Every structure is written in C-alpha cells, then in structure tokens.
Computed example of a mutant assay.
Amino acid sequence: MVKIPELGLDDDLPGAQFASETKKQMITQGAEPGIHRFERLPSYEHYAGMCACGFRTPQPSYEHMGDLNRFIWEHLERDVFPPVDEALLLKEAQLIDLGDPIGYHRLVEATEEHGIRHVGWLVAGTRGSMCLKDGAEFGAFQGSWIKYSTEQEESCPMEKTESSSPVWVPDSYWGTPNELLKQGDTAIGRIRYSDISHAFGCWFGPPEDERWVGLEEDAKDARGVVEAALKRQESGPVVWSFGSTGEAYDATQSRADITDGDVLVIKREKVIGLAWTFPFALTEAFGELRTLANTYDPRTYKDGMFAASIPVAEGEATRLGIPLTRVDAAATAPGDSDQEG
C-alpha cells in the first residue's frame, strides 16, 4: 500500500490532493441538486474552497481569501443568478418616482435549506430607493434620502480627497459597500464586503503588494484594522511573548493586532518564530509552530516578506541566548524538501 504523505507547504503533494478530493466528494454527495453554498477545502498554506454544486475554482488554492470569494461569486453571477433586466428596473423606478437613477444591487440570501440564492434587486435613485423581490408584481418603496444637516456631517472626511492625510473613499465592486483608503491618488488599503461571508475583508498596502489582515463584521472595525496594520508597518515588526507555542499559534489565528512578520518569543520552550498564516519557528525547537523546509531561506521566502523580521528576531535571540539554527542553516541547506512541524 502506498503511503500518503502529510500535508506540506506544497498543495500539489499527493497528501494534499487526497485530502482535497475526499472533502470535495463529501460536499457534492451530501448536497441536494441546485444547492449553492461556499465550502472550505483543506489547504496547508493558502485558502481553498468550492461551491456545493460541484464548481471548482481555476486554481486549487489562493493566497488571499478575497480572491477565493471572487471566483465563487463570479460563478454564481455567471452560472446561477438570473441576469439583470435593466429596462424593467428603470421602469419600476420611474413608476415610484425615484428621480435620476444611481444604480442597482443584487439581493441574495444564504440559508441552510436553500444555500445562496438570488431574491431580488435593490434600486437607488436621487430621491430614494426601492426593492423589487423575485415574483413580486411591483417594486416596494424603501425610503427617501435624508440630507446631512450638521456642519460636521456636511464636511464628511470621505469627501476630503484633497487632504494630505489618508482618507476612506467609496469603491464600487460587485455593487457592495466597499471602500479604499487613499493617500492622495494612491490606494494604501481597502475593505471589501462579501455576501458569502457577510463580513468585510481587510487589506493594507498598495494594490500590487497588498496583504490580507482579517475579516470584520462591521465596516468601522474593518477600517480600524487596516489603519492599525499600516501604523504598525511603519514602526516595523512587533515582538510578542507567550507562555507556550500553542498559545502563540492560537494568537496568530485569532488576533487582528498580530500581523505577518511579527516576532513570536516563547522563552520557556526556547522557541523564536514569525507570525504568518501558519507561524513557523526559526529555532531548533518548534513546539506547536511549523517549520520551513531547509531549502527555504526565511530572508527571501515569499519574495522577502519576512526580511525585515529576521534582524528583530536575531536581536531577541542574542538577548535570550537562543540560537536561530534554522536561519543559519538555510544558507547551506542540502537540496531536499523535507518538512517538519
């Protein structure tokens, strides 16, 4: 009998393929025909998932949860949801006298019984909005817009794009309430709402080098997470101390204030590591943390995203007298791909 290896950093390993295919069979065999629901799949390093109907994303996994959500949503828009009838929506908007049209938004619901499904449209005009539910003969008026009346609200910071300080501005994407944090004309962060997760995904950094920093149910909290990540990036990696490697691992998975590249110190177990999706140790001991294969140099791994963290970790290692054997060994590692942890 062929031994199936454990999951490694490479999702193409037989062990990862076996786990993924098994989970896909469980999902598709357990779903009723026509049920569409986002399902997570096992993936060691990145994010993997599929639709319960059997749709699979072009790649087995993605570095960012937002990319995975986008492919699932594109599948629903392309293959499942009915196309928009703009003429009908405009007609209903004129009957209710919504004023000049602003736009429309697809309404969806997610339930255990029916999965994710289209239920109607929300239409906005300069005078108000209306809801046109599937099967309804007429649209239902939702309400009129209320103008800002206070001096503070009239000078809303989202409109002060000329300011030298970063400001949040609306960002239209799939008709959902998304925002960009801009410094002048440059985007340095964003939040994006997902109808699948019912939460705002948070990213910081320019579009070509942005990093995922978590999910928040409230838009205000999501903005705060992005702004905090940017401030902490300016000051460099933060050192966090823990009583055990298990505690350190759990903290990286649940705390938004710990970001990729932060240094983890567990003095009791003589472990120093770096925070990441799967935090890894730089010391000989690793406990509940992961370790990189000895062919990976942490200074250059993932296009150098941990390069700034190594000097900070080395400073802690010198202070505590704990050698970073996995950093030193990386430069002269043999050509194999063994993975511990």
Rank of each mutant, 00 (worst) to 15 (best):
D218K: 08
A317M: 02
I188N: 11
P14F: 08
E21D: 07
D185F: 08
D79L: 11
R127L: 10
I258V: 03
V225D: 06
A52I: 01
G54T: 00
P83V: 00
F286I: 07
R268H: 15
E208W: 09
S164Y: 11
G135K: 04
Y62G: 11
T161S: 14
I196L: 04
R255A: 12
A317C: 05
G315L: 08
V271L: 07
Q253K: 12
S235A: 12
V271S: 05
A48S: 10
D260R: 13
E113Q: 13
P311M: 00
W203R: 10
K302S: 01
G30Y: 02
L95M: 10
G341L: 05
S20M: 14
Y47G: 02
K270L: 06
F38G: 03
L282P: 14
A275L: 05
H75I: 01
G103F: 05
V265Q: 02
T150R: 06
P170L: 05
G335M: 04
D336K: 09
R37L: 12
S129H: 09
D10H: 04
A140K: 07
K220F: 08
W121R: 07
S254H: 14
V167T: 11
L13A: 11
R106D: 02
I272H: 13
P42E: 04
K270F: 05
E112N: 12
E45R: 10
R290C: 08
T57W: 13
F286W: 08
I96D: 15
F242C: 03
T176C: 08
E112D: 14
R268M: 15
I188M: 14
D185K: 06
P82T: 01
D11K: 00
A329D: 12
V119L: 10
D250W: 12
P14T: 01
T318H: 13
V167W: 09
G125L: 09
V2H: 15
I188K: 15
P58K: 01
T277D: 09
G115F: 04
R127V: 01
W203H: 15
Q183R: 14
D218S: 12
R117F: 07
L320A: 00
P334E: 06
E137T: 12
H75K: 07
F286V: 11
G224R: 12
A275V: 06
P83N: 03
A124N: 15
Q142E: 15
A293D: 07
F38L: 09
I116C: 06
F286S: 11
L264W: 04
I188D: 10
D134A: 15
G246Y: 07
L88M: 15
